[in-house]
Amino acid sequence: MADTATAPEPASTAPAPAPATAPAPVSRRLPVHKTYKLYLGGAFPRSESGRSIPVTSSDGAHLANAALASRKDARDAVVAARSAFGPWAARSAQLRGQILYRIAEMMEGRRAHFVQETVDAQGIDEAPAQDLVSAAIDRWVYYAGWTDKIAQVLGGGNPVSGPYENNSSPEPTGVVAVLAPQDSPLLGLVSVLAPVIAAGNTAVVVASERAPLPAVTLAEALATSDLPGGVVNILTGRTAELAPTLAAHADVNALDLAGAGDLATQLETAAAATLTRVLRPEPFPDWHALPGLARITPFLETKTVWQTVGR
C-alpha cells in the first residue's frame, strides 16, 4: 500500500494543539500533523469508505480526525489476520517473545507521545499518565516472557494406558476479534491485545471508540517492532458498527468482549452461530493487576496427540 506510516516523531514533539486557536508568529514553523489511520495487514490505510471521525479530548477539544472504519474494513482485517495466522503461530515461541519485547522497546521510544495522548484521552495529570504508559510497556515485557512458557505450563504428557505416547499442547485458537476497553485506551488495550498475540493468535482490534488515538500510535510501535504485518490489525470507528460483523464472521475464532458494553449479549449470540469462543467482559476490570494466564487460556485450544510405541 502506498500510504505508509509517518516517521516516528521525536519525543520532544508535543501533540498538535488545536489549530487556529492563536495566530502564529510569522517566523514560527508550521508543525506537520499526524494523520491517524487504520492499521491493516501491516499498512496504514484510510478507511476504504473514505470516512473519518473527529476525536476530542476528555474535555471536548478537537485532537485529530481518526479513520471511521467500515464493515468492509473489518472484513479485510479478518482476511489479513487469517493470512498472518499460520506463519505467526509457526514462529518459534521465543522469537514471538523477542518481538513482543521489541514492542515494549518501541513504546518506550514513543513514551512522551503516549503520555500526552493518555493525558488528552483520559483527562488526567501527567504523573498518572506516566504510570499508565509504564504499566502498558511493562505489560508487553510480561507477556514477552510468557510466550515460551505457555506450552510448558499448560501442556505435557498424559500417562495413558497401553503402548502409546500421549501429549497435550496448547495451540492458538486463530483469529481473535478484540473489542478494546472503552475507558482505558492504552493500558486496557495492551492488556487485552498482548496475551492474544503472545499465544500465537492474530488479532483484529476495535480501538476505544471515544479515545482511539493511543491505539493508532501503538500501531506505529507495532509496525516498527518486527511484528509481521497482519498479526495485529487495528480498526478505529464505531464499536456498534464493526463488532457485529466481527462477532458473526465465520473466520473469526474467538471474541474478546472487553469493550462491548451493552452489546455483549447480542454479540455473544451472534458468535454462537459459528461456535466462536467468547471471553465475556469483566464488570470491573483492574487493568493494573497482574493478569497471569487468565487472558491467555481463553484463546488457546488443547491439541492431544497419540502415537504408538513399538520397535
Partner: peptide, 11 residues
C-alpha cells in the same frame, strides 16, 4: 519395499 509393521497395531 515391504510395508513396515507397527508393533502396537499388531498387538
Amino acid at each position: 519395499s515391504l510395508p513396515g509393521v507397527d508393533e502396537a497395531g499388531v498387538h
